[in-house]
C-alpha cells in the first residue's frame, strides 16, 4: 500500500533520513521505534507530504505522491503535538474538517468522540484545552473519516491511563478490520 524508496532528508547539516526503504501492506500494524531525533516524525511527515524529501520516492497504492494530494483522503493522521486555530471551539474544528473533506467521505466514525466525552465540551475553545484533551481531539479527528491508513505519532503520550486504554482498544479494533496502522513511539 505504501512503498518508500530510498528517501533522504537533511535539515541543513543534520541528516534526519538516510536512504530509507519501507514497505507496508493493508491490515498490518507497524511500530516505528527509536530514540528522540531519529527521524520517526520526519518519515511520517514525508509520507503525508508535509516534508518534501531531498531524494527518493514514496508510492501510495502504486502512484507517486509527488504533485498528488487526493491520496491524503485515505489517511487519518494524529500529530505528536496537535496544533489547532486558537479561537475555534472543538465543535467548530470538527465541523470545519467535516466540511472540508465532505465530498470524499461516505460514513463518519464518531466512536472516539463519544468515548472520550468530547461531545459534551463541544463549545470549549481550543486555546483553553489541556494537552491531554488536545490529544483526544487529534485522535478523534484521525479516526473520524474511516481512513484506510492510520498514522499515529506517539498516540498515547500525554493521555491518562483510562483514555489511553480507550485509544488502544480502538486501534486494535480498526487494525482487525483490515486497516494499516503506523505508530511511532520511543519506548
Amino acid at each position: 500500500m505504501i512503498r518508500v524508496n530510498n528517501i533522504s532528508k537533511s535539515f541543513s547539516k543534520f541528516k534526519a533520513l538516510d536512504s530509507i526503504n519501507i514497505h507496508c501492506e493493508k491490515g498490518q500494524s507497524i511500530a516505528l521505534i527509536g530514540p528522540n531525533g531519529s527521524g520517526k516524525t520526519t518519515l511520517i511527515k514525508s509520507i503525508l507530504g508535509m516534508v518534501v524529501p531531498d531524494s527518493g520516492d514514496i508510492l501510495f497504492k502504486g502512484n507517486t505522491i509527488k504533485k498528488d494530494f487526493h491520496y491524503r483522503a485515505e489517511i487519518g493522521y494524529m500529530p505528536q503535538i496537535g496544533r489547532y486555530p486558537d479561537n475555534m471551539t472543538i465543535g467548530q474544528v470538527f465541523d470545519m474538517m467535516k466540511d472540508i473533506r465532505k465530498a470524499k467521505v461516505v460514513s463518519l466514525d464518531e466512536e472516539l468522540i463519544q468515548n472520550f466525552g468530547l461531545d459534551k465540551i463541544y463549545d470549549k475553545r481550543m486555546r483553553t484545552l489541556s494537552g491531554g484533551t488536545r490529544q483526544k481531539v487529534s485522535a478523534a479527528l484521525a479516526f473520524l473519516f474511516n481512513a484506510s491508513v492510520l498514522i499515529l505519532d506517539e498516540p498515547t503520550a500525554g493521555l491518562d491511563p483510562l483514555s489511553s486504554e480507550i485509544l488502544k482498544e480502538k486501534i486494535i479494533k480498526e487494525n482487525k478490520s483490515g486497516k494499516l496502522v503506523l505508530i511511532t513511539s520511543h519506548t
Partner: peptide, 17 residues
C-alpha cells in the same frame, strides 16, 4: 504567522498546497 496551526491542519488533508 498566527495561521500556522490552521495551515498545518489543512496540509495533511486532501487539499492542494
Amino acid at each position: 504567522y498566527n495561521c500556522s496551526e490552521f495551515i498545518e491542519l489543512l496540509i495533511c488533508q486532501p487539499l492542494k498546497r
